[in-house]
Amino acid sequence: MATVAVSKDQSVWGGGKSPYALSYGKLMMWFFLMSDAFTFGALLISLWTTRFSVSSWPDPNQVFKTFPLMGEADLPLVFVSLMTFILILSSVTMVLAVQAGHNMDKKGAAKWMIFTIIGGLCFLSCQAWEWTHLFHEGAWWGRNPFPNRDGSLPTTAFTNYFFTVTGFHGFHVFSGVVINCVILANILGGTYERRGHYEMIEKVGLYWHFVDLVWVFVFTCYYLL
C-alpha cells in the first residue's frame, strides 16, 4: 500500500522514478511474498483454530523423536533441529551468492548458489525421510496413530495439517531449488555478466529466504508448541 510520503524528499514520489528505489521485479517479488505469507498464514491459522477447538493434541517430543540411522534412539526434536540448521545455512549461502553478485563475481556467485542448491536438496531429503518414517509408523492424511498428550484418542487433525503444511512448504522448497538451478545455469552462461547486474539472484534470494522464514514458523507451530 502506498503511503503518501511526507518526507523531506517529496520528489521521490513525484513520478518518473521508483519511490522505493527498487526495480519493478524486486517490488513484485516482495508483494508476491506477502501474498504467499497469507497462503501459509491461512494454513497455520487454520491449524491453530483447530487446535483450539479440540481438547488435547499429540506431544511433538513423542512424535518427532527419531533420527536417521539411529534406530530406536529417543532423540526428541534433534532431527528437525538439523533440518532447521540446514535451511538456515542455505539461506546464508544464498546471501553470500547475492553479495558475490553485487561484486560482479561470477565464480563466487556460482559457488554459493551451488551450495544453496545442495542445502535445499539436503533439506528435501530430510523431509522425505521424515515423511517416510512417519508413514511407516501409520501416519498419513486421514490416519493419526499418535495419542494426545492427555492420553485420549486423537483426531486426524494432527497429521492432516502436518502433511499439508510441510508438504506445501516442501513444494515451495522444491520449486525454489528448481528456480535456483535455472539461475545457476544463467550465471554460468554469463547472462548476468552481459546484463551488467546480478539482481536476479537477489530476487530469487528473497524467495529462498521467505521459504526459510516460513519454516521458522512451521517449526514453532509443529515442533515446539
Binding site: T3, A5, A21, F217
Partner: peptide, 26 residues
C-alpha cells in the same frame, strides 16, 4: 520465532536497508 523472523527479513532479505516507505509498505 519473531526474533528469528525479524533477523531473516531485516538482514537476509535486506529489508532493514531499504527505503523507509518500502519497509512500511511491507
Amino acid at each position: 520465532t519473531f526474533v528469528k523472523a525479524g533477523y531473516i527479513v531485516a538482514e537476509f532479505m535486506h529489508l532493514r536497508y531499504e527505503v523507509t516507505a518500502m519497509i512500511r509498505s511491507v
